[in-house]
């Protein structure tokens, strides 16, 4: 699945063109690419992720995932895209607080996943969350919740994964583990990653780096 961003600019950022590597420009990324977007505060990093994911459409231009313009797509088309092809790790995590860590993962797996529950359980183990598996998400620390959100993002057989400051609350060791697992799964799927962060992350093997 190819990502094509055409002259995209959120309504509130009328002067993006010319400065940004994305806003107001036509850019395209092939599946399997590793795109790093460095975005200092206030440049619209989360807006970009939300626009690419179809959570908002208050912008000029277009975002095509193959032939689907998510800014114009209806709810069912977006659901089909998100269920299988396009995954995300939100900056604000967006877990179900009343569900346990494991149930949060199952809620995503119920939409279909190439992985078995045993494999997913191995990922939980890798990120050091096994002992917290049956705890409601609201009782997890923010770092644990962040790792849970990352695991949830890895479950579907995605073709693209969007990451919005996914390791912001992890220590270096846990961040490295989470990034390694993310890249391993993306490689296995032949999927692309679009990773937006405030500062550069030298551990991420980017094929393209853009400044927002």
């Amino acid at each position: 699945m190819t990502l094509s961003i055409q002259n995209l600019c959120p309504d509130y950022l009328s002067t993006g063109a010319g400065i940004s590597g994305i806003w107001g420009r036509d850019v395209a990324f092939a599946q399997g690419e590793r795109v790093f977007v460095r975005a200092p505060s206030g440049t619209g990093k989360t807006s970009l992720i939300h626009l690419l994911y179809g959570l908002r459409n208050d912008a000029f231009g277009a975002v095509f995932w193959d032939k689907t313009n998510v800014l114009k797509a209806d709810a069912e088309a977006l659901a089909a895209l998100r269920a299988q092809k396009l995954s995300v790790v939100f900056q604000d995590l967006r877990l179900f607080p009343e569900l346990t860590l494991w149930e949060n993962l199952l809620a995503k797996k119920a939409l279909g996943s190439p992985e078995t529950e045993t494999e997913i359980d191995c990922w939980v183990e890798k990120l050091g969350l096994r002992h917290r598996r049956d705890r409601p998400a609201r009782q997890l620390s923010y770092g644990e919740q962040q790792r849970t959100a990352i695991l949830r993002g890895l479950i579907p057989g995605f073709q693209w994964l969007l990451l919005d400051e996914p390791f912001s609350h992890l220590d270096a060791e846990n961040a490295a583990k989470a990034l390694a697992l993310t890249e391993e799964i993306a490689d296995r799927r032949g999927a692309g990653i679009l990773y937006a962060e405030l500062d550069d992350n030298p551990c991420f093997k980017a094929t393209q780096k853009l400044f927002l």
Binding site: E76, A79, R82, A83
Partner: peptide, 13 residues
Amino acid sequence: RLRLLREIGYSPA
């Protein structure tokens, strides 16, 4: 919860 379900890919239908 409904909003979040839609956001992670559950179809409204």
